[in-house]
Design a protein around this nucleic acid. Structure first.
Length: 344
DNA sequence: AAGACGGGGGT
DNA sequence: ACCCCAGTCTT
């Protein structure tokens, strides 16, 4: 096949040197794949290095406390990945004696491993002939074949998987899959790709039809909701404070935060103050309340805009179960809270 | 089938 | 402001 030969040739000359490449340890490949879900290589790379240093084997990861895993994951986002990673590490270590499943089908049974990741691990570690279909593959194939199927639709995954399967050269799944993704990441980029220097500029249908900028088609748009968070940073006579754990479903599950007063809308600061006084988070008498940041910090997630204010709440005496600032160093926080703490 | 789930970087 | 990133899980 001309397409795959050209692509693989390009890959061997242009690939980045990344620490999870040029080896077939399924543990490292799995770790990198989970970290890179919806995440750029540049962002995930330092996390991969700190994880492999802290947990050189799947047993080390399995034996860790979830809190340590989440702490190392802090700032990477989509924390269910870290929780599932830990759960799956325990499963592999204790149920499978540390042996990873060796087929895409069996890998798919594990928590946090979906169709893409199962195919990625199976092809990279065991060279199984299964195609990967990620955002890069959608884009490269949609353009090369001028396909305007909505990639967010249910049928798109099947359609593109079938095309990729046909293109995949048997016995070279490892190379081909990495090549097509690398090509999407480096050459066939989402915005303004430089088609003048593209290896496929004599055969790409989107280029011929002047549709490169229009493909792939993605219709679904996530709508963003606004929320209003007031974090209460209590301080007693020892400067001890209160930290709580987010155990409910939703954003930041199992991460820590200050006691939270969420309001339906942006209400006046005086109303927040009277609310704080009524809520009795602590039995101590409150002696002073004031804002750290008069302007809300707007923390933008893909689906929520969090308008955050941090309040200093001074109280008399000692807080029951107060926590020393030194002891929160090992606790995982949402990055916006971690940044606030670091700035103090 | 649609929505929830983070954070950062590019345009 | 909007889009995208080596997606998966839940509803």
């Amino acid at each position: 096949m001309k397409f795959s030969n050209t692509l693989i040739h390009w890959y061997l000359q242009n690939k980045r040197d990344l620490p999870w490449r040029n080896q077939t340890n399924p543990y490292f490949i799995w770790l990198s794949e989970i970290m890179l879900q919806q995440t750029r290589v540049a962002q995930g790379l330092p996390y991969f290095l700190s994880f492999t240093k802290a947990f050189p084997t799947v047993f080390d990861l399995a034996n860790a406390h979830e809190e340590q895993v989440l702490k190392l994951w802090q700032g990477l986002g989509y924390y269910s990945r870290a929780r599932n990673l830990h759960q799956t590490a325990k499963h592999i270590a204790y149920e499978f004696n540390g042996e990873f499943p060796k087929t895409s089908k069996d890998l798919l049974q594990l928590k946090g491993i979906g169709e893409y990741t199962a195919a990625a691990i199976a092809s990279f570690a065991y060279n199984e002939n299964v195609p990967v279909v990620d955002g890069n593959v959608f884009r490269v194939l949609a353009r090369y074949f001028d396909i305007d199927t909505d990639i967010a639709s249910a049928s798109a995954k099947k359609e593109f998987t079938q095309i990729a399967q046909q293109l995949l050269p048997i016995g070279q799944a490892n190379l081909f899959n990495q090549a097509i993704m690398e090509f999407g990441a480096l050459q066939c980029v989402p915005k303004n790709p430089d088609c003048n220097i593209c290896i496929f500029n004599d055969s790409c249908l989107a280029l011929q039809n002047k549709k490169v900028g229009l493909l792939p088609v993605k219709l679904k748009k996530t709508k963003v909701t606004s929320r209003f968070f007031n974090y209460l940073v209590f301080l007693d006579e020892n400067d001890d404070s209160i930290i709580t754990k987010r155990t409910q479903k939703g954003i930041w599950q199992n991460l820590y935060e200050f006691p939270l007063l969420e309001t339906e809308s942006a209400i006046a600061d005086e109303n927040i103050i009277s609310s704080i006084q009524k809520q009795d988070f602590v039995s101590n008498k409150i002696t002073a309340i004031h804002l750290y940041n008069s302007e809300s910090i707007v923390h933008k997630l893909s689906h929520q805009h969090l308008n955050i204010k941090f309040w200093k709440v001074k109280v008399e005496g000692k807080i029951q179960n107060g926590i020393n600032w030194k002891s929160i160093e090992k606790m995982p926080f949402p990055i916006v809270i971690h940044n606030f703490i670091s700035s103090q």
